[in-house]
């Protein structure tokens, strides 16, 4: 029962470092957003977001210290989302196709094919 009412006490070092790292990454991604990276901009932004998410999941949610099943559940959510994105992409990436005369939305790019 040590210090049941001893104020806030000192936060664990790992949590503080995680928090600072997260804030640093916010600054980084905000800064990089104003750098003209072209199409890589979104990739960089999402990569930084993924790192931030990884920090939260690992150090705040302690996913990798809990039971394996929790990891399986978290992984399943992401995997199933990946199914949606990747298989729907088989349609969307092959949609505007001159060979089949298959066009969906007018994007203004059809003529260039």
């Amino acid at each position: 029962m040590r210090g049941a009412d001893a104020g806030l006490g000192r936060p664990p070092r790992a949590l503080v470092l995680t928090w600072l790292a997260l804030l640093g990454l916010v600054a980084l991604t905000l800064g990089l957003a104003y750098v003209p990276l072209g199409r890589m901009g979104i990739v960089v932004a999402l990569a930084i977001a993924a790192v931030k998410a990884g920090l939260v999941v690992t150090l705040f949610m302690k996913l990798f210290r809990g039971p394996v099943l929790a990891r399986v559940a978290a992984g399943a959510g992401l995997f199933w989302l990946a199914i949606l994105f990747s298989l729907a992409a088989t349609d969307y990436l092959a949609r505007n196709d001159a060979a089949t005369g298959n066009f969906s939305l007018p994007t203004g790019r059809e003529g260039s094919r």
Binding site: W80, I83, L87, A88, T90, D91, Y92, L93, A94, R95, D97, T100, N102, S104
Partner: peptide, 21 residues
């Protein structure tokens, strides 16, 4: 979870997607 677009074969999806599904 890998077969859903077979409901959409004639809905205007890409022919290649149709083959995959």
């Amino acid at each position: 979870f890998f077969v859903w677009a077979h409901h959409m074969f004639v809905a205007g999806i890409s022919l290649y997607a149709g083959l995959v599904f």
